[in-house]
Design a protein around this nucleic acid. Structure first.
Lengths: 241, 241
DNA sequence: CGATAAATTGAGGACAATCAAAGAGTGTGG
DNA sequence: CCACACTCTTTGATTGTCCTCAATTTATCG
């Protein structure tokens, strides 16, 4: 390394926590350097919005840390959350002029953002990235179809139980506690009751009542309204239909 | 062409109706020939099943003609239709060992099937195909998220209206009647009332009652139970929320 | 034409929504 | 540090939409 080698833009990828899990996993070092040039890190605070529904699709991003929600609204303003993205997930709409949903941080978050057009071009030039994105998109489509089943056929109790199982699982992928094996699980909800309702197609009151029921039945404990302890996952799974 | 050039397998792609709309659109002639070698045409009759939920994912396919449904069921047998695929759409689950939903023909149909593993390999070797598939998958994900909005937030009337608009639009892409401009639309439903109910997360009776209501209000006409005439799309859109 | 399935219509009931109020948690300023 | 305001959550009472059950009508097909 000599004096001309001035670091203008730090290569975040090198020490990136999701380097081997996100869509960049299959890229070689040279490709990573290129990708690093067109991307940049950005911090988001709780409630901060990254994209607005219907806007021009200017950005796409990898989630490095934190949880974000994707949401759409009806003409008269009813909001539905249509997806949650976690650490190592991809967010945004490549190859389209407009963003079909808004994206907002549910927790403080770190994302790795790209100008959508830069990203589109990079994806077209780098099949390894495109393939990873394809696999992720297919998985996300499977997930959203399971959500369609939930909304179409499950009752309130089954929905809330399914939601807790899903969120618990997705949050614990990072934590990887050996405790998982015991069937016990503890996690912090990244959503308010209103947001949970907007995911499950229920009202805030119905969600609250289901939580209370689960507590009374000993299926969950709730030291605070956002801390969930599931002593025995099986019991919860039984309620999920 | 000499005597050694025996045509063992007709090249269906050459005269394929969806050659320029399906995921093979961007392939050159050489690539098409290769793809043609690993694929074959198959006819499906109404009600015939192409894939079973939970089975090993052996096949993927392009829909040449007809409409198919994708469905999942809850543990206790409640069925939810999670997607419809039309002419030029892709169906199946690449890059996965199991099929997350069943696929069944709603009309007589023609599909262009591939062994999943052959297709996976081809996609990895041919970025132009992979990119087309990616775009389609992203579009399908957008669609399924709009469906989540429908199931989460719309009431029965809005759901049925939205459904009619969506089906009408997707069927008429092929027909391309100039009549579309007039705001008038006529089409044949490829689904029974039960199937419509299983898409909309409603019961057969509720669907029927909504149809009757729309008829009485002059928003649709129904010469037969599967023929829908929408004199003025705007009126229907108003009911869709 | 008769048999079977699909669709419609009606009556009553259940589950979740709505409306209303109290309780718990959080943050601010005196 | 505590009082006050504000938001979020919980709980209760009532309403309404859609489901369930049942019967009839219409369509489909041998």
């Amino acid at each position: 390394m000599d004096g001309t080698d001035i670091i203008e833009r730090p290569n975040f990828c090198e020490a990136c926590a999701i380097r081997n899990r996100a869509i960049c996993a299959d890229l070689d070092n040279q490709e990573i350097d290129l990708l690093n040039k067109i991307g940049r890190r950005r911090q988001l605070q709780v409630g901060e919005q990254l994209l607005w529904e219907g806007d021009e699709a200017v950005l796409v991003a990898n989630v490095v840390e934190g949880v974000l929600k994707l949401s759409t609204a009806t003409a008269d303003g009813r909001e539905q959350i249509v997806g949650l993205v976690y650490s190592s997930d991809f967010v945004g709409r490549p190859f389209s002029e407009t963003t079909p949903y808004g994206v907002e941080a549910l927790t403080d978050a770190t994302v790795c953002v790209f100008r959508r057009k830069d990203f589109d071009r990079f994806a077209l030039d780098h099949p390894r990235l495109a393939n990873k994105l394809l696999e992720r998109t297919l998985t996300e489509l499977d997930r959203s179809r399971r959500w369609i089943l939930l909304l179409g056929k499950l009752n309130a109790e089954e929905r809330v139980a399914s939601f807790l199982i899903e969120v618990g699982r997705r949050l614990e992928v990072d934590v990887d506690q050996p405790a998982n094996l015991s069937g016990r699980s503890e996690f912090s909800l990244p959503l308010s009751r209103q947001q949970i309702a907007d995911i499950l197609g229920l009202t805030i009151e119905t969600v609250s009542r289901q939580f209370t029921r689960f507590k009374k039945d000993g299926i969950i404990q709730m030291p605070t309204s956002r801390t969930i302890i599931v002593p025995d996952i099986k019991a919860l799974i039984n309620r999920a239909g």
